[in-house]
Design a protein around this nucleic acid. Structure first.
Length: 679
RNA sequence: AGCGCGAUAGGAUAGCCAGGAUAUUCCGCCGGGCUCAUAACCCGGAGACCGGUGAUUCAAAUUCACCUCGCGCUACCA
């Protein structure tokens, strides 16, 4: 291990990307927070002094816009979300040492101080830019306050991005027919002076920084395009009256761009923790101004802010640079990212309302794949992991060992741990620490799971239930060894599953909190006596699984059939056709009789469809979304008078109708028979 | 378009930076065992030309080049 391996003698600060005070949290967010929480607990487990801090991100245009829509003051609006976030964090056992928000006094003060330092040292300059303006109200219209038509594709777009259409970023002034979203007035463009952070001053520094940075590969490499290319200066002010006022002698009406004060909250929140517990326990200045080990856990969508702007700000104002950035991948549903506006997500509240143990989700999120890769969430996958690894392996081992020990010996037999088992536990401890140093929480958690697996094999092969008659002394030895493994397993898994392991810890007769002990304790004797244990994990049975799946399916399908893909304005802008033209379409009910793969194609299926008067051979691009057996017998809608087409060398005589990107097949509610005309 | 991250048995995954002989683990499948334990657990087996092509090497999943596909980022999306 190198000299600066964890644990170091410095203070560590683990932070999580701030939740934006604008909407509910889903399990994609939780992937980041569970990772941060598990990391901070793990660091403490190996003896690193650590603070885990976060806060709500209160400012910015989206909050201002949404508050306005609800007729609230932005502060009231943001604070209500800030309050709401306490519950899901508590429920998921995410224990921040401090959870603040960006609009509080400490953050306001520190942010202004940092910006002033940057300004005083000439890293900030004024520049006139075009901003949208509401001439009637005499108000500036930043970012999302302005709407109009995208100059590239014509779709309805916000001032800064064509988010409904071609997704292109729009520069100020590009949008056509700009209107204020507040008043509906036509907007115009005016010149206005703004503050720019000269990031190019830090190019050399950042090049060094990105080579030193530890963490996930995406965080270390994605910013290189900017850092090793030419850095563009960063506009750090906005024309709204919600945010932290720009500091300086000549007060302006500008507030700081939300990303400036959002990241400073990492420092502010640490300071608040420090102020509360005293600097003898945790000195924020030692961490942030001297030699702290700063680790940021974020979603991979905000890498640039943390790996480019933020280190430049810190360096320019004399603060400690981040040691590592861990950028987590997204949680997807059917390979596609959650969409909060379409309610295509697993919300944290959904999870709680199913009365599922939070530790199960924590374990799943931590161990399901590599941290930086996207994962595809499914309840079946989740249930497999819970039932296989937690119930079957870990839980079963703990339960059978503790129960046997309690019944036969009333606790831990008076023996020394065998050399073999002692060595195996030490290996697990080493594996755990090594994994933390590689920022792999997956392997650190699996160190515990694998040890439990070893325990299961150990007890099975030694069969103490037989030995207790033939060789009682050896039986006691085996159980003694198993109990040591139990103790170690609990400690190793405690960062990932804090509640369950604490419960077992107490059942083993331990009197302190498992979260106060370090890894070394795993080799010390368990208590001599304890009571009957309880089953650590409850399985997710088939009925529950089916229920979870159908609830989710229902919601996703409901949303995709409700026309959510198209905003009302989009559909109303369509070119209308005459009824006569519509009548020319011959749409009929067809029944799928056979399905065949088309070799060489991943997407296409060859369908034989009964359309009443005849059967047709139709090629459809639905192979990705349906299994061949599921399709047989389905009633679908067929456009029968379409020109024949040759697709992938196969003739297609007609077209099967399906909705959207996931090719949701149109089918019937009643019992219409094949050939029936649709009108 | 540029850049980043990926592609490994039916599904999900590890290994890749520091190249080495039968490619890891979990679910599922097949066969056997056990009964202390939550129909759990243990042992054995089948199943992968490690996305493609080429290069370097005694040796490539691992390094290099090019290509294909997927996802994302591109600075006023927090």
């Amino acid at each position: 291990m190198s000299a600066n391996s964890f644990p170091t003698n410095n203070l560590a600060v683990v932070t999580c990307g701030l939740p934006y005070a604008n909407g509910n949290l889903h399990i994609g967010h939780m992937r980041t927070y569970v990772t941060g929480d598990t990391l901070s607990r793990s660091l403490r487990k190996i003896g690193q002094k650590t603070a885990f801090v976060c806060g709500s991100d209160m400012h910015g245009t989206p909050v201002a816009v949404n508050a306005w829509k609800e007729g609230k003051h932005p502060k009231e609006f943001a604070l209500s979300w800030h309050e709401k976030y306490k519950q899901p964090f508590l429920g998921m056992a995410i224990e921040f040492d401090n959870y603040g928000h960006t609009d509080d006094e400490v953050n306001t003060m520190l942010t202004r101080e940092i910006v002033k330092t940057l300004d005083d040292s000439n890293h900030i300059y004024d520049k006139e830019i075009l901003v949208a303006w509401d001439p009637l109200e005499n108000q500036p219209l930043p970012d999302r306050y302005v709407e109009g038509a995208c100059p590239h594709c014509g779709a309805n777009a916000r001032g800064d991005e064509c988010d409904d259409g071609c997704q292109r970023h729009l520069e100020p002034g590009e949008i056509l027919n700009p209107k204020s979203i507040i008043t509906g007035n036509d907007a115009e463009y005016r010149n206005k002076s703004h503050k720019f952070f000269r990031i190019s001053d830090f190019q050399d520094y950042l090049q060094g920084f990105i080579n030193r940075l530890e963490g996930t590969a995406n965080a270390k490499n994605q910013p290189r395009e900017w850092i090793e290319g030419s850095l563009r200066d960063w506009c750090i002010t906005r024309d709204i009256d919600w945010g932290i006022p720009y500091p300086g002698a000549e007060e302006t009406d500008l507030v700081l761009y939300v990303w400036v004060d959002a990241v400073v909250e990492y420092i502010s929140s640490t300071k608040q923790y420090s102020d509360r517990v005293g600097s003898a326990t945790f000195d924020w200045e030692s961490a942030w101004k001297k030699n702290g080990e700063i680790i940021h856990v974020i979603g991979r969508d905000i890498i640039q802010h943390h790996a480019v702007f933020w280190p430049a700000m810190l360096y320019g104002s004399g603060y400690t640079e981040p040691r590592a950035i861990m950028a987590t991948g997204f949680v997807n549903l059917n390979k596609k990212a959650f969409s909060t506006s379409r309610n295509r997500a697993i919300w944290v509240d959904d999870y709680f309302s199913e009365k599922l143990d939070p530790d199960l989700l924590r374990y799943y999120l931590v161990t399901v794949g590599s941290l930086q890769d996207d994962i595809d969430f499914s309840w079946s996958n989740f249930a497999d992991k819970v039932n296989g690894e937690l119930v079957g392996n870990t839980g079963n081992f703990l339960y059978r060992s503790l129960l046997f020990a309690h019944r036969e010996y009333g606790g831990t037999p008076q023996k020394l741990v065998s050399e073999t088992v002692n060595k195996r536990i030490q290996e697990a401890i080493t594996e755990f620490s090594d994994s933390i140093n590689k920022y792999s929480l997956r392997s650190s958690a699996l160190a515990g799971t694998k040890l439990a697996q070893y325990g299961n094999a150990y007890i099975q092969q030694n069969e103490p239930w037989k030995l207790k008659k033939s060789n009682p002394d050896f039986a006691a030895q085996v159980i003694r060894d198993c109990l040591q493994i139990c103790k170690a397993v609990c400690i190793l898994l405690s960062p990932t599953m804090p509640n369950t392991t604490q419960k077992i810890w107490e059942e083993m007769g331990e009197s302190n909190s498992i979260h106060q002990v370090t890894l070394i304790e795993a080799l010390e004797s368990p208590p001599i006596s304890f009571n009957s244990p309880s089953e650590p994990f409850m399985p997710i049975d088939d009925k529950k699984l089916k229920d979870l799946n159908s609830k989710l399916d229902q919601r996703i399908n409901h949303n995709s059939t409700m026309g959510n893909e198209n905003s009302p304005s989009e559909t109303s802008n369509l070119n209308r056709i005459s009824f006569e033209l519509f009548q020319k379409l011959d749409l009929r009910i067809g029944k799928i009789l056979e399905t065949k793969e088309i070799s060489g194609s991943e997407k296409l299926l060859l369908l034989t469809v009964d359309i009443g008067s005849e059967t047709r051979q139709i090629v459809a691009g639905i192979r990705k979304f349906y299994t061949m057996d599921d399709l047989i017998g389905k009633h679908v809608v067929v456009a029968t008078n379409l020109e024949k087409a040759t697709i992938f060398g196969t003739e297609s005589d007609g077209m099967v109708l399906a909705a959207g990107d996931s090719a949701d097949l149109l089918t019937t509610h009643g019992d219409s028979s094949p050939g029936e005309r649709i009108r």
